[in-house]
Design a protein around this nucleic acid. Structure first.
Lengths: 137, 137
DNA sequence: TATTAATTCTATCGATTTACTAGGAATTAA
DNA sequence: TTAATTCCTAGTAAATCGATAGAATTAATA
């Protein structure tokens, strides 16, 4: 399941993608538009900024705007930024790999192989969902 | 990600599936064999019993055994039993559906449609992973 | 230069969940 | 009767989650 953070991030990105080119959106505007608690959204926007999905302008008349094409922002990326690994176990993960502590023989985790199959399919599907694909519905 | 409970459940089922027909496995035997904390495993086996994957014999010389074919126990089922919904949001879930609280117009969640696509693909993949498929590797 | 309105940063909080552990009651076979 | 096992109910420490508070910083503009 997605965390609220990841869900809100997607909704915020969706909101930004729907605005006119060059429009800068204030946090409160996004919060109201996408029904997200404002203070919570602040953190999320900072995370999105660190992840280089959005940028911000500070001070009066400041706000947030997309710096990555809505065609290039995928569900997979947002999942990883906020919720971490897409694989079902760390030992089956590409970006968050860790060996299992409870598997006796290293690399002979009985689940690993099967879970890597799942990961590949899920990842492929998640990379197919972009902000752009969610906007035009 | 899978919880430890779900991971241990899979490993325990795998252990049971590898035993001879009619063999009854004690908790401690499974715990040692699959490297799972014994007391924790007790709870997990009870959950698996309630889910009708295994059955048990009580008292001295008691223990657990599979009552469902290893070909018919899928990753999807174990995920649902221990970790709940497979979909990324409740509003996109088949078995754990709940409407989003933060979507203004009911059934017009901007994410729902895309997440249902993911759910379908992930679910199909997870239904393809059975205990039997994990045993023969 | 002062004011105002916005982002940014740090810290904290309460509730829930997770991963276990403890202790004992109930059950069964020898 | 005893030993070995499942079954049941609590409890607990740590982490995570969802959210809030408040002050610092930045920038436009009057």
């Amino acid at each position: 399941m997605l965390s609220h953070k990841a869900k809100y991030a997607l909704k915020a990105l969706l909101y930004l993608a729907e605005q006119d080119e060059n429009h800068i959106s204030r946090t409160i505007e996004i919060a109201d538009g996408a029904n997200i608690p404002k203070k919570f959204l602040e953190q999320i926007l900072l995370d999105l900024k660190r992840g280089r999905f959005v940028s911000s302008k500070q001070g009066k008349f400041g706000g947030y705007y997309l710096i990555k094409s809505k065609n290039d922002i995928t569900l997979a990326e947002i999942h990883r930024l906020f919720d971490g690994a897409i694989a079902l176990l760390p030992c089956a993960s590409l970006n968050f790999y860790e060996p299992c502590s409870d598997c006796k023989t290293e690399d002979e985790c009985s689940l690993r192989h099967g879970l890597m199959l799942i990961r590949d399919k899920t990842l492929k599907a998640m990379e197919g969902i972009t902000i752009a694909s969610l906007v035009k519905k």
